[in-house]
Amino acid sequence: MSEAIKVPTAAEYIAQDKVPEVLFWVGCSGSFDDRSKKITKAFVKLLHKAGVDYAVLGAEESCTGDPAKRAGNEFLFQMQAMMNIEVLNGYGIKRIVTTCPHCFNTLKNEYPELGGNYEVVHHTSFLKDLIASGKLTIEGGKFKGKRITYHDPCYLGRANDIYEAPRELIEKLDAALLEMKRNKRNGLCCGAGGAQMFKEPEPGNKDINIERTDEALETQPDIIAAACPFCNTMMSDGIKAAEKEGTVEVLDIAELIASAQDL
């Protein structure tokens, strides 16, 4: 990179009496998890490249409350939600983009009833629009002919009916998009949702992420594409368990596109 990227915060915007066109909601995983931070950074590089007028909340961001709600703790969920809504409304935020389907679902579907009304976009749809409007261009060279299979995150796919945007982006990379047996609305969960990420699984005969990774490996991919930091973690663990670390990579769609641009 030629120059260091400065990530603007909503607080800096309001100090200049401005409102960012879109707020990038980073999410807990994207903020703290070492693997997920790479997704965050890749996405931010794309935002800069496309000249998007954006900001983040930084230290004022807090968990959306998704794991609390799925765990049954509505109290904690609503506390989190109302605090976040106060912050977001305070900055006059109208539009939010996020790299996490769980944050996406919660912000989009569960905040309105608590007073938080925003246009919420997942980063795959956002990137698709940037490309459609010519603000971002994709050069497929790097991934030409690569075998890429896409894992549908439950909270993007079944929960919100977004199946095509991530696939269109992969196809723009000139890669061979491979479908797993269970895909789109029949896609199998990675095992992280519903707050499972934060607890041991119940007794069974297999871990869900192993089941899903095995299915992904059946397509003999070079890359497993994900669009959710938690799916990414689960599939990466699955790849480790299958001892395929050297041959198969798990990458977020944002990473694929940033990498195609040598960002």
């Binding site: 915060t9 807990c28 903020s31 983040v56 968990c63 794991p67 765990a71 904690l76 506390m79 989190q80």
Partner: peptide
């Protein structure tokens, strides 16, 4: 434990909320 973390520091893991922008 994860829920307690959310309550205390706004994330399911025990990281300080002030560090959320460290990646930048």
């Amino acid at each position: 434990n994860a829920l307690t973390n959310i309550e205390n520091n706004g994330a399911p893991w025990p990281y300080n909320q002030q560090d959320r922008l460290n990646w930048a």
